[in-house]
């Protein structure tokens, strides 16, 4: 079955990103397809490579990046939400006159239409948030 996932909270403050990750892992193990994981609201903070948790803690951002690489999962940060919260790729940084970008590997920035498309194309859409 084809799943899409919406993550609406940032890492560490709320459990949503952990639950979404555990769910995604379990779905992949069972042979399901993950059509897209869309990050909205503070969820876009899952996609900054500047995250530096203590060594004995999980690295939530790296975990997403590794998952994307292993399973070719489409990780999408909402552009409007990302701009508000200071998450940018090279293009976005240039366009907005910023001196750096911070997007993590495996993520891309795109519009909210990608969330609607995820709902249309997948068999199930499940939201993890607060």
């Amino acid at each position: 079955m084809k799943f899409s996932i919406l993550v609406s909270e940032g890492p560490y403050t709320h459990q949503a990103a952990d639950t979404a990750y555990n769910f995604t892992q379990a779905a992949l193990e069972k042979g399901h397809e993950i059509y897209r994981i869309f990050f909205y609201h503070d969820g876009v903070n899952n996609g900054t490579r500047l995250t530096t948790p203590p060594q004995d803690d999980r690295n939530i951002v790296n975990r997403w990046s590794e998952l994307a690489q292993e399973h070719e999962i489409d990780l999408v940060l909402c552009v409007a939400a990302a701009q508000r919260r200071g998450i940018a790729d090279a293009d976005e940084a240039r366009r907005n006159g910023k001196d750096a970008d911070n997007i993590a590997a495996g993520f891309r920035i795109s519009g909210l239409g990608q969330l609607i498309d995820a709902g249309i194309e997948a068999d199930r859409l499940i939201t993890f948030g607060d």
Partner: peptide
């Protein structure tokens, strides 16, 4: 249930509503 059971429930029911 565990996360595997969570996935099974999402698959079994035609849609999921998250009460946040």
């Amino acid at each position: 249930i565990d996360y595997s059971g969570f996935v099974d429930l999402v698959a079994k029911y035609d849609k999921t509503q998250s009460w946040l």
